[in-house]
């Protein structure tokens, strides 16, 4: 009884609170540097870490973070990992770092992060903290002078659907949910303390050319594009396989429906004959018959995720091709000057 009361209080508390939507993720320069360093040091291995900060209205401030050690599939190590996390939080609290988990970060290769695991991790986080965010960093893109940092969250409607684990076509139509609606990208703002700002202004080199200019004007993008296309075609194969599953489902569904119709017709004729003979009619349904067993509709989640991946690769190809155009015209102009 008391338990039920407590729960209802909790429910009331959670419903009364009007959650303003998350609009901006404000990251400290320190966090960006930490994430980049961690992801780069271990690339191409994929790494993750915890984000710490404050939730202020529609802005989520990320003020610090710490890396997780690379996970191994071992229970003992897993317990160790949890200890590590607690220890790190405790230590950071002692030096007055914001002690509030607001999400996690992870590295990715060519933006291939849309996986079921990511969604599951997100749901886990979401259970404990109402507003959380996942920051994705792609170290492979920094070679082109691009800061590939993204803040993502799952859309509310998708989360609702994910809890029911019901990804049938009908449900999706009902919710009007398409693959674009799974992830929501949140704009990132960068903030720095005045002290850092002073130091960086001081330390900014007088050189007119800096490292990211060299990176950006690098002409060769072919290896990057090749890998992108490779991943793209793999994804296309996966998508085709998913489509085939669906087709198979529809074929067997229509076959089953045909069988059901035939059976029903037969049963009706039989009943008519029985009626004529003055006997009780047989029921028009027979749950024990295997042809009435509903066929499981395949989940659309996988194909949604693959579609998201593909769209991501397409965006990257477009972006890099756009950059290449500018570079090529620049090259041409340089040579034209020469003549």
């Amino acid at each position: 009884m008391a338990n039920a009361m407590a729960r209802s209080f909790l429910q009331v508390a959670s419903t009364e609170e009007v959650a303003s939507p998350l609009r901006v993720v404000q990251i400290e320069g320190l966090v960006i540097l930490k994430i980049i360093k961690h992801c780069k040091d271990f690339a191409p291995a994929l790494v993750t870490g915890q984000l710490l900060g404050l939730d202020v209205g529609s802005v989520l401030e990320v003020t610090n973070c710490f890396p997780f050690p690379i996970r191994e599939e071992d229970e003992e190590v897993e317990a160790d990992g949890a200890n590590y996390q607690l220890e790190m939080m405790r230590c950071l609290r002692e030096v007055n770092v914001d002690n509030n988990t607001v999400g996690w970060y992870q590295s990715t290769i060519l933006g291939s992060f849309q996986t079921v695991e990511l969604i599951e991790t997100f749901m886990n986080y979401q259970e404990n903290i109402r507003r959380c965010v996942c920051i994705i960093y792609d170290p492979s893109r920094s070679h082109q002078g691009v800061l590939a940092l993204k803040a993502l969250k799952l859309s509310d409607s998708f989360m609702e659907l994910f809890r029911t684990q019901n990804f049938t076509g009908e449900k999706l139509r009902e919710k009007n949910l398409s693959w674009v609606d799974i992830f929501e990208e949140i704009p990132i703002k960068v903030s720095n303390s005045a002290l850092i700002s002073a130091f960086m202004t001081e330390l900014e080199s007088d050189m007119p050319v800096i490292q990211c200019d060299y990176d950006r004007l690098q002409l060769s993008t072919n290896p990057y594009m090749e890998r992108n296309l490779e991943f793209l075609s793999e994804c296309m194969d996966e998508l085709a396989a998913e489509q085939q599953k669906l087709q198979f489902y529809y074929r067997s569904l229509s076959r089953q429906q045909g069988q059901q119709q035939a059976w029903l017709q037969k049963r009706r004729q039989e009943n008519m004959a029985r009626k004529a003979a003055g006997e009780e009619p047989l029921p028009e349904e027979d749950p024990s018959n295997p042809i009435f067993k509903p066929i499981q509709e395949p989940s659309r989640l996988e194909s949604f995720l693959v579609t998201n991946q593909i769209a991501n690769y397409c965006n990257q190809i477009n972006g890099v091709a756009g950059q290449s155009f500018s570079r090529l015209y620049l090259l041409k102009a340089l040579h034209a000057h020469d003549k």
Binding site: G29, K37, V146, V190, M200, D215, V320, S326
Partner: peptide, 29 residues
Amino acid sequence: EAERIGFDILKTTSADKLPNELEGMEVSM
């Protein structure tokens, strides 16, 4: 490492958005 990210976002106290590919390209050019 800081140059790679760009001093533009590291030296201000608040930058509203990260530069995207083409904007970065424009600055470099």
